[in-house]
Design a protein around this nucleic acid. Sequence first.
DNA 1: CGAATTGTTAAGCACATACTTAAGTATTCT
DNA 2: AGAATACTTAAGTATGTGCTTAACAATTCG
Lengths: 129, 129
Amino acid sequence: MLNNSVDQPLSDRELDVVFHALADPTRRAILVRLCDGPAAVSELAAPFGMSLPAVVQHLQVLEASGLIRSEKIGRVRSCSIDHATVRRAEDWLGQRRTPGERRLDRLEDFLSRGQPASNEHPPSPRSTQ
Amino acid sequence: MLNNSVDQPLSDRELDVVFHALADPTRRAILVRLCDGPAAVSELAAPFGMSLPAVVQHLQVLEASGLIRSEKIGRVRSCSIDHATVRRAEDWLGQRRTPGERRLDRLEDFLSRGQPASNEHPPSPRSTQ
DNA sequence: CGAATTGTTAAGCACATACTTAAGTATTCT
DNA sequence: AGAATACTTAAGTATGTGCTTAACAATTCG
């Protein structure tokens, strides 16, 4: 249990592709699925009402991001999650949080809670204009 | 120091917009900047070689995602990071990691390290076809 | 060998994204 | 009041994304 989160941090370019990969419900569902262990392409595609090539494209995005790895054995491609990349993305977020929270932002933070829960998430995020 | 990461988890739709917001270098740079405390719109725009409206659009994406909040005082809009949302995104990644790593994926993981560092990140992630 | 299985490649299309410039509004300064 | 400041809104554009269908491998089964 040593070596906790001490990987090489993700580059800016890598963060682009990793977070972009995560910004899609199908791809996140695939990741969730892969948490239960490796799976073949068609096995991953089964739950979704979408063509096989569409899922393969999602898998390419995931693999290019480093969030999953895959290996083709015979005619079956087995995909698995890459925990290290997940952890690196998590680490980036952690760094956005930890040093920020130790500052006197806490005061500003505290004061902003004047408007309560209704400020958390408006119904239509993209139509805020 | 109680209440550590026990927020309401982000919905699928919220994860979409949060990770999409994070998938852009300008927006991440803005978040990094806001870790040092609140800032005005033009103050945030200054470092980037891009028009003010472009930065404002990024800020709208960030605010719609819940990653930042903003308040207009007089003619100045002050933006600040919302640590709670950052933490919720981090938590989602943590859940993708922790329960996965406790499984026998570890074996699969271990075996896959046969191909070492060269497998980590090819130079051109999107041109893998 | 021939057929089924499993995945891959290519081309195309509708829509979203990340900008731009131009023009407008609200606030503060003099 | 008039001018400067600090955004805001609108409209347009080039490129990217998420699918689709059709056709093409490569592997395994009978």
